[in-house]
């Protein structure tokens, strides 16, 4: 096993980790701020991938425009869903279960709508101009598109950190996570905040879908795979913990990349194995803060 092989796998793991983190952070955002579990988050990812396919392959337009279109499309759809559907069950008894149920129905609906519009066959889109080759240093070749994803991921992470911690809308969102009623009393339009947060998170999902489309094939079943992987990330990272999710994604991405290299047939098993090990030894997640004793 030589160094170039190691490095290549690590970069591929990092790429996967970035994609996972982008989806998982949207999931965490909605859960943290709105206390809504969006089971259909993976479906917004899938929707983004199809919108990207529509722009790049069907309309033969620019890839960068596809990213924007996918993010906007998924975001607007997400915001609509929030204010037309999810809002109606806020505060109901057993709300958590009904949220999962409603968003599950959404998965069924989006899956079929996608089939209706684009058909059930596998789709793919090509990498954008300038990023189809590899970056070569010595005898190490790294696909430049992977580096692009990692870079975009870093930009999004830094930007979200900045928005959440340094801007007024970000502070409102964080305050909403703590005490919604108080925020309402301060004259903030809480329902609007929720819709916007939902829109941003689903836009992030859509963007990730389009970003991942050149690497993975686009299929109607993609949503559920993505939501399971993101869920594993969120559970491992310590629930609702932004940086925990990042480390969880990194761990899962790297484990997956090396598993694919050595035991391709059983690679997916390793994601579960890592999660099971984490759950056995630290059921509260790797980076969860110490909480009071629960009996």
């Amino acid at each position: 096993m030589d160094f170039s092989f190691l490095l290549t796998q690590m970069v591929s793991g990092l790429t996967l980790a970035t994609l996972l983190f982008l989806v998982a952070s949207g999931l965490t955002l909605i859960f943290g701020v709105g206390n809504v579990f969006n089971f259909a988050h993976g479906s917004f990812y899938m929707l983004g991938a199809y919108l990207g396919y529509q722009v790049v392959t069907v309309w033969s337009l620019n890839f960068w425009f596809a990213l924007l279109f996918a993010a906007l499309g998924a975001g607007v759809f997400g915001a609509l869903i929030e204010c037309l559907v999810l809002r109606r069950i806020y505060g109901r008894a057993n709300e958590g279960g009904f949220q999962i149920l409603l968003t599950y129905c959404l998965i069924l609906i989006i899956d079929d709508l996608v089939k209706l519009v684009w058909g059930a066959e596998y789709k793919s889109i090509s990498r954008p101009a300038g990023f189809s080759g590899s970056l070569t240093v010595g005898d190490i070749a790294i696909p430049s598109y992977n580096l692009l994803i990692i870079a975009i991921g870093l930009v999004v992470v830094v930007a979200s950190w900045w928005i959440l911690n340094r801007t007024r809308p970000g502070k409102i969102a964080r305050a909403a996570a703590v005490d919604r009623e108080m925020l309402g009393a301060l004259g903030i339009n809480v329902p609007l905040t929720m819709t916007v947060v939902f829109g941003i998170a689903t836009a992030l999902g859509g963007l990730t879908g389009a970003l991942a489309a050149p690497l993975r094939t686009v299929t109607p079943g993609a949503g559920i795979e993505v939501i399971i992987d993101s869920m594993i990330v969120v559970v491992m990272g310590g629930m609702g913990n932004f940086w925990g999710a990042w480390l969880g994604a990194l761990l899962l991405g790297e484990v997956n990349a090396f598993a694919v290299a050595f035991v391709p047939e059983w690679a997916t098993l390793f994601s579960f194995l890592v999660m099971v090990v984490v759950l056995i030894f630290k059921p509260e997640g790797l980076f969860a803060p110490r909480t009071t004793r629960k009996v």
Binding site: F31, I228, M231, L269, V276, P283
Partner: peptide
Amino acid sequence: LLVIRVGGVYYTMLTLAFGQLAWQIMFK
């Protein structure tokens, strides 16, 4: 023993994850 340690939506998602794991094993 494993999945009941986490509550709420995490329980739901873990049961889903293990179900899908079994499906993949049978599939492969």
